[in-house]
Measured scan of single mutants.
Amino acid sequence: MDTYKLILNGKTLKGETTTEAVDAATAEKVFKHAANEHGVHGHWTYDPETKTFTVTE
């Protein structure tokens, strides 16, 4: 398992979190669910070198 990071750049919610996942696709599902639960919808990017997802509203 690897550690993946999410950076939230929402209009009303900003922050960072991490998750352990077997691959980037699994981490993305976890992060998108969490972002949706917090009402953050926007443009997603992924940097494979740093294993970091970013969502920007």
Rank of each mutant, 00 (worst) to 15 (best):
M1H: 09
M1V: 10
M1G: 08
M1C: 12
D2P: 07
D2K: 13
D2R: 11
T3V: 12
T3P: 04
T3S: 06
T3K: 09
T3E: 08
Y4S: 02
Y4D: 02
Y4L: 02
Y4R: 02
K5G: 03
K5H: 10
K5F: 11
K5V: 10
L6T: 01
L6K: 01
L6M: 07
L6F: 08
I7N: 04
I7D: 02
I7Q: 04
L8E: 03
L8S: 03
L8K: 01
L8R: 01
L8N: 01
L8V: 11
N9C: 15
N9F: 10
N9P: 04
N9Y: 11
N9V: 13
G10A: 06
G10R: 04
G10P: 03
T12E: 10
T12R: 08
T12Q: 10
L13I: 14
L13D: 05
L13V: 14
K14S: 10
G15K: 14
G15L: 15
G15N: 09
G15D: 07
G15P: 04
G15T: 15
G15I: 15
G15R: 13
G15Q: 12
G15C: 15
E16D: 05
E16T: 11
E16P: 04
E16G: 06
T17Y: 15
T17P: 03
T17F: 15
T18V: 09
T18A: 07
T19A: 07
T19F: 12
E20Y: 12
E20W: 13
E20H: 10
E20I: 14
E20Q: 14
A21G: 03
A21M: 03
A21W: 01
A21V: 04
A21F: 04
V22E: 11
V22K: 12
V22Y: 12
V22F: 11
V22P: 15
D23W: 03
D23H: 03
D23I: 02
D23L: 03
A24D: 04
A24T: 06
A24P: 09
A24M: 11
A25T: 09
A25I: 10
A25L: 10
A25E: 12
A25P: 08
T26E: 13
A27H: 00
A27S: 01
E28V: 06
E28G: 06
K29T: 09
K29E: 11
K29A: 13
V30Q: 09
V30L: 12
F31H: 00
F31D: 00
F31S: 00
F31K: 00
F31W: 02
K32L: 10
H33M: 14
H33D: 12
H33K: 15
H33W: 11
H33A: 15
A34G: 04
A34M: 15
A34Y: 15
A34P: 02
A34S: 08
A35N: 03
A35Y: 05
A35C: 08
N36F: 13
N36E: 14
N36S: 13
N36G: 10
N36A: 14
N36K: 14
E37M: 14
E37Y: 10
E37F: 12
E37T: 11
E37A: 13
H38K: 14
H38N: 10
H38A: 15
H38V: 15
H38W: 15
G39Q: 06
G39C: 06
V40W: 09
V40S: 03
H41K: 12
H41W: 12
H41Q: 12
G42N: 02
G42I: 02
H43S: 13
H43Y: 13
W44F: 04
W44K: 00
W44M: 04
W44P: 00
T45H: 11
T45P: 00
T45F: 08
T45L: 07
T45W: 06
Y46D: 00
Y46E: 00
Y46F: 08
D47C: 09
D47P: 00
D47K: 04
D47N: 10
D47Q: 06
D47R: 04
P48I: 08
P48R: 07
P48W: 07
P48E: 10
P48T: 07
P48V: 08
P48Y: 07
E49N: 11
E49M: 12
T50V: 05
T50D: 04
T50W: 05
K51P: 00
K51Y: 07
K51C: 04
K51H: 07
K51W: 04
K51E: 01
K51M: 07
T52A: 04
T52H: 02
T52L: 04
T52K: 03
F53Q: 00
F53C: 01
F53V: 00
F53L: 01
F53R: 00
T54H: 05
T54R: 05
T54P: 00
V55P: 00
V55G: 01
T56F: 08
T56D: 08
T56W: 09
T56V: 07
E57D: 07
E57T: 06
E57K: 03
E57P: 05
E57F: 07
E57Y: 06
E57L: 06
